[in-house]
Design a protein around this nucleic acid. Sequence first.
DNA 1: TATGAATGAGCCTTCATTCAT
DNA 2: TATGAATGAAGGCTCATTCAT
Lengths: 207, 207, 207, 207
Amino acid sequence: MINMGKVEANKFKKLNTILDSAFDLFTNQGVENTSIADIAKHAGVAKGTFYLYFQDKHELRNRLIYHKSSKLFKEAADALESVAACKSTPMSFEDKIVFIADYIINKLSENKILLSFISKNLSWGVFKKALTNNPTDTEVDFKEIYYKMLTEEETKFKEPEIMLFMIVELVGSTCFSAILYEEPADITVIKPYLFNTIRAIIREHEA
Amino acid sequence: MINMGKVEANKFKKLNTILDSAFDLFTNQGVENTSIADIAKHAGVAKGTFYLYFQDKHELRNRLIYHKSSKLFKEAADALESVAACKSTPMSFEDKIVFIADYIINKLSENKILLSFISKNLSWGVFKKALTNNPTDTEVDFKEIYYKMLTEEETKFKEPEIMLFMIVELVGSTCFSAILYEEPADITVIKPYLFNTIRAIIREHEA
Amino acid sequence: MINMGKVEANKFKKLNTILDSAFDLFTNQGVENTSIADIAKHAGVAKGTFYLYFQDKHELRNRLIYHKSSKLFKEAADALESVAACKSTPMSFEDKIVFIADYIINKLSENKILLSFISKNLSWGVFKKALTNNPTDTEVDFKEIYYKMLTEEETKFKEPEIMLFMIVELVGSTCFSAILYEEPADITVIKPYLFNTIRAIIREHEA
Amino acid sequence: MINMGKVEANKFKKLNTILDSAFDLFTNQGVENTSIADIAKHAGVAKGTFYLYFQDKHELRNRLIYHKSSKLFKEAADALESVAACKSTPMSFEDKIVFIADYIINKLSENKILLSFISKNLSWGVFKKALTNNPTDTEVDFKEIYYKMLTEEETKFKEPEIMLFMIVELVGSTCFSAILYEEPADITVIKPYLFNTIRAIIREHEA
DNA sequence: TATGAATGAGCCTTCATTCAT
DNA sequence: TATGAATGAAGGCTCATTCAT
């Protein structure tokens, strides 16, 4: 984004216009019910222009998930950092993970549209990729943060990736139902059990 | 199926032919890529006939999920019963739940097509309905079984529905990735952690 | 066409409507410039209906060539038969072939649109198929006629298929240019040389 | 190419790059399936640049046919000249024409891609133009050669242009099928009959 | 001259749904 | 009940062409 020629800047802007339009439509009417014509019209570009930026709807969808979930993780990580900086005693690993989970759950509770979009489309494969690949300015290398958190802790863990996997899957799938449909109960009722389970998962993995 | 007139029997047969054909196609080529024409052709009926039995593809899909997941739970419950009957000492609640989870995981490992179909389409809402509503001969009222298991146990539990919810969501989402893609690891590697987490969830809910 | 149910009769009629419409459009604006939407509209059917009768434009084109060229040969063969019946002495093989060529050339001179369509699209492969396959009422098994003509002749011929091939190719390609563009000369100027060449080709193949 | 400024040389080079790329693509995937974007990409120029050199795909195609068929005739004429020079007795007109036909058939047998391209696109009109117009260095005024051959011969011919026309059409159309599809037989089987027919055509035209 | 982003008309094709038989 | 021909809206995608840079 820095040192961009006028043409590149324009392309970048147009790309983002398309991404935003697509997100709007995907979340309001569903991915399946959104045609490329819809997206192009909403973005104010020609149908053909879409194909200059994306190969098809699936690629667009994946880039959107990557973009949105990455942004959310970055926010959570930033919030953790500010909070940790204020504490007199260092936070435990457990507390950090719970903090991040809580932060994300709260954000998703406020933004059910985003939750709906991410949950329906996020798989561990996509998530892993989102956490790993080429983070840009607005994205974050969560993998690095996670492993940094691990090394800062005295305790060592077996299979840290499986540990993360189980936490992510548990949080993701319970939130979806609890926040969107309050099933089987409101997220506030579920949270304590959820956080305890997260702590239990972490303890199981202590070496 | 009992005391059915010839006409009713024929309708029932045709209905099942359509269901089976749809399952075949849904699991082999995906729900989205299966047209009603495909289903009708595969079932050997006319396209118009489809509409005599189902309102649209979504209704068909839901009935299929209900039918297949219910059948799976019935099998697991039956297996548990036979095993429990052979034991000298009664099984603990924890052991029972783990047994069922293990049984279902093993079945889904053997039948990835079924796993793929159920996981992509099963939500807690549908699951709950499947466990609750109008069980037919081939289906099972798992809710009743679950509550029976709870009452047989001396220990009492807080929020048993949330407990079940968390277990189901955890098992469902982790299996999907682990069995189908071996991500982040093979299901056999994940199982011990998964079962320990299930036990942890149960203990959290002890009153 | 005989003993057709009402539905079959309707389908047959619709098929022919599409074929006729396509021929109209193909000959007036070219195969490449004719879209399936054009054909459907011209035929007064929905676009989707086209696909109930043909797989794509190429299949339609081939069936059209087959149909039109076969019809032309049938006419020529019929004309030959009537003429031969009136003669006191039997016609020679050479005379018969020249008669057919002449008949076809005259017809194509009168119907340049048909000539243009056939010539641009007819290849020996398609021609051979047209002469061989499943002749319907309006079509003719020219192959049979050709071999009958051969056997009626006392003289025997080497490689009769190559002989036919060369005649067909020669007549087809020279007519195209001569009739449509009068290049290098009007067809009437060329005819004598052409017929002499046909006779020369036949004589070369005498055993 | 001689005395060309640097700019002109560059343009000439770019023009040829586009021609070569187009030929590659036309022969490999067909004229219809080749887009201008394909050609530009293959030639390493921008899409807009194409329009600085050609009005559209048809102009390009015609220039290509002209160029390629002319080159082929030049080769044949050159070969004839070398061979004739070595002979003690002068070659007859018939022999010369058959030599050229044979040479061209052999070349096209070796280069089916070229045959396919020329045959599908060459008409007598284009051919005549190719033989007549503005021959450049790599092209040849075959018309002149043909008439020179005629004058060298003692025998005089009626309608020499019709004679050439018939030979060209006969050879062109028979080769296409025989070489590309071996239909109705391999070109080597057909050749003797073909050459005899050529000789017959020539004799018919003797004054 | 050269570029290539942008356009938008236009193409092919699919498919849920209807309805006369 | 059952059929399957017919519909036509809708979608994905391509591509010749333009034009600001």
